[in-house]
Nucleic acid binder design. Sequence first.
DNA 1: TTTAGGATGTACT
DNA 2: GTACATCCTAAAA
Length: 187
Amino acid sequence: MVTDRPEGTVAVRLTEVEAYSGEGEDPASHAHRGPTPRAAIMFGPPGRLYVYFSYGVHWCANVVVGPAGRGSAVLLRAGEVVVGEDLAAVRRPSARVARDLARGPARLTAALGIGPDDGGADVLDPSSSVRLHAGAPPAAVSAGPRVGISRATELPWRFWETGAASVSAFRPGGKPRRRPAGQTGTS
DNA sequence: TTTAGGATGTACT
DNA sequence: GTACATCCTAAAA
């Protein structure tokens, strides 16, 4: 994922995403109720950017997938900044460590500088300021329940790179407990 | 260190 | 009016 801005370029390698289906089988999706004005972009052609405003202060970005009219999208949940880390750090002053620059959907969107103006942008268009590049697939990918929703939590439609330090902190059934002994978050 | 509460646009009841 | 695909700040232990 790359964004070109007057102030610079930021590239992020996505490490965590969530799938949302609009086919009515997924009550957690914004598209579940149909093409509302906010979710209309999800029903458009694939490769478009669906940006929505959440909780009044955060923007989250999705990439529309599947045929037009289906309403399916992939939420970009987390990633690691590989280019323009300095600029990303400026955009995310609250991020104290590099790992937190894009850990979380709103943080990822902010680190990339994606805003409402980018809604509907074609991420496959080379001339677009927001582009999606295909990279080498990770060695291992894990799947599990989605985070931050209250419906259809059983669907294991969250996918992340196994062992990635930038994935969202998921609390299975309660407290996050400290860092598991085997996994080190730092290098 | 962990827990609680607040901000605020859009959609649904 | 309430809930939400969230994150940040403040307070307590």
